[in-house]
Nucleic acid binder design. Structure first.
Length: 209
DNA sequence: GCTCTAATAT
DNA sequence: AATATTAGAG
């Protein structure tokens, strides 16, 4: 039904992961989020408020949008997972309304996500350095994926669900069928999916929209 | 006393 | 499943 996608973020600007984040880097920047953007702290209003009291003092769950997650990732990159503590991350993100506990919860989930990427067991101890590496890889992977998506999107048209797959914390590896014309090159690209792969230098500033 | 992290609850 | 809340440790 409907050809139009009911996505919650109709105006979501694709691309620009680490590109748009002037807040990260120097805390003295104090970058306010655009009011018309989805960057603000979105609150979910639990439907079912019977009774009249207009008391809108309802607790609401924070919805981590792509923009918020981008800021989160950028903060981690600048602080380093080792020194990335909720308080510091919160300061770098500079999102009004966000609390230290919001960040702590998301950080916990992100750590679990990273260790899964490493194929580590849920009960396995992971060194901070190991997570740091996984984080860096994850960031590079995301950047590379976005670049590829741009290229593919231009040729194949709009792809619904591609971004959705990335959403927030989704270990997904796009098995792109690389042309079989190149041997080593294709192998390197294919091997880039699993962790522990130092390559794919997204030094392409063409990710600019 | 405050903050971080892991476990647990909703 | 995603986020909040709690409990324990530093």
């Amino acid at each position: 039904m409907g050809a139009a996608s009911p996505g919650p973020a109709p105006g979501a600007a694709p691309g620009a992961v680490a590109a748009a984040a002037p807040a990260a880097g120097v805390p003295s920047g104090s970058t306010q989020l655009e009011p018309s953007s989805d960057a603000g702290v979105e609150e979910e209003q639990p439907a079912g408020e019977a009774g009249g009291a207009g008391g809108s003092g309802r607790k609401s769950r924070l919805v981590w949008t792509q923009e918020l997650h981008n800021r989160f990732i950028n903060a981690l990159s600048h602080l380093g997972l080792k020194n990335a503590v909720p308080k510091s991350i919160l300061a770098l993100m500079n999102v009004e309304g966000m609390t230290r506990e919001n960040v702590a919860s998301h950080l916990q989930k992100y750590r679990l996500y990273l260790r899964r990427l490493g194929g580590l067991s849920d009960r396995d101890r992971v060194d901070a350095d190991a997570l740091q590496r996984l984080h860096e890889q994850n960031v590079q992977q995301m950047a590379a994926q976005q670049v590829l998506q741009h290229s593919l999107a231009a040729m194949q048209g709009p792809h619904p669900g591609v971004l959705a797959a990335m959403g927030i914390g989704l270990g997904d590896r796009p098995q792109l069928t690389v042309s079989t014309s190149s041997g080593p090159a294709a192998a390197a690209a294919a091997a880039a999916a699993p962790p522990l792969t130092a390559a794919a230098a997204p030094a392409t500033p063409t990710d600019r929209q």
